[in-house]
Simulated scan of single mutants.
Amino acid sequence: MRELPAIVVAPVDASLREAVMRLRVHPAQQDFVGIISNLLAEADNSRSSEPMAVLHGATPIGFYCIETRSRSIVGRDFGPTALGLRAFFIDADWQGRGWGAQAMTAILADLATRHPAARRLVLTVNCSNHAALTLYRRCGFEDSGELYHGGRAGPQHLLLRALPG
């Protein structure tokens, strides 16, 4: 049996940008994530945002941003060793196959390499986005018990995950 390519992550550079721009989510998910062109434009305009592609082999199947200033996640600081995770999604055509969990494993491995001093990953997830909440909990995120009310689609859980180090 042929082994499938591993899921890896890489910064969105000129060689990936066009393919990343074609990524999309289901319409019902757009309020949770946003539109890829807007996400890339926001990242381009922020020195603390690192746009990243989730790759299956050489094919982009997902996207996320690492925020080197965790304050950008909910407007408060989580310390100098905290990073933020924003806009994580798997393309609509690739959803439902377990790629999200594999992508999260690749994200955490990448953070250990590119941000070895980081000790915490912070994110928010919409309260009605049950699939994402389940994924994040399976991947070791803990609910802080706080809700963030600044999201465009309603209240969000604030989730935290310790990073090894």
Rank of each mutant, 00 (worst) to 15 (best):
R2N: 14
R2H: 14
E3M: 12
L4Q: 10
L4M: 13
I7N: 09
V8D: 04
V9N: 02
P11F: 01
R17E: 01
E18V: 09
A19K: 00
V20S: 03
M21A: 12
M21D: 08
R22S: 14
L23P: 06
R24K: 13
R24L: 04
V25G: 12
V25F: 01
P27D: 12
P27I: 05
P27V: 02
A28L: 12
Q29C: 11
Q30G: 11
D31A: 14
F32C: 11
F32P: 06
F32S: 09
V33S: 06
V33G: 10
S37A: 15
L40R: 01
L40V: 01
A41D: 13
A41V: 08
E42R: 15
E42Y: 10
A43V: 03
D44E: 14
D44G: 06
S46G: 02
S46K: 03
R47F: 02
S48I: 07
S49A: 13
E50A: 09
P51V: 04
A53L: 04
L55E: 00
L55G: 02
L55F: 00
L55S: 02
A58G: 07
G62F: 01
G62P: 03
F63E: 03
I66K: 03
E67M: 14
S70Q: 06
R71P: 01
S72M: 07
S72N: 15
I73C: 05
R76D: 06
R76N: 04
R76W: 03
P80V: 11
P80M: 09
T81C: 11
T81Q: 15
L83S: 03
R86H: 06
F89E: 05
F89G: 01
I90G: 08
D91S: 10
Q95R: 08
Q95C: 07
G96P: 08
R97H: 15
R97K: 13
R97T: 07
G98Y: 11
G98L: 09
W99V: 08
G100Q: 07
Q102D: 07
A103L: 10
T105S: 15
T105L: 14
A106C: 13
A106Q: 05
A106W: 01
L108R: 15
A109L: 09
A109H: 11
D110I: 01
D110E: 14
D110Y: 12
L111G: 10
A112Q: 15
A112F: 04
T113M: 12
T113A: 11
T113R: 15
T113V: 12
R114F: 00
H115V: 05
A117H: 13
A118C: 10
R119A: 10
R119Q: 11
R119D: 02
V122T: 09
L123G: 10
T124M: 07
T124V: 11
V125G: 04
C127T: 13
S128P: 05
S128G: 12
S128T: 13
A131L: 07
A132V: 01
A132C: 03
A132L: 02
T134H: 15
Y136W: 04
R138D: 06
C139D: 05
G140K: 09
F141G: 10
D143H: 13
G145E: 08
G145W: 04
E146Q: 14
E146C: 13
L147E: 07
Y148Q: 09
H149Y: 11
H149S: 14
H149P: 07
H149W: 09
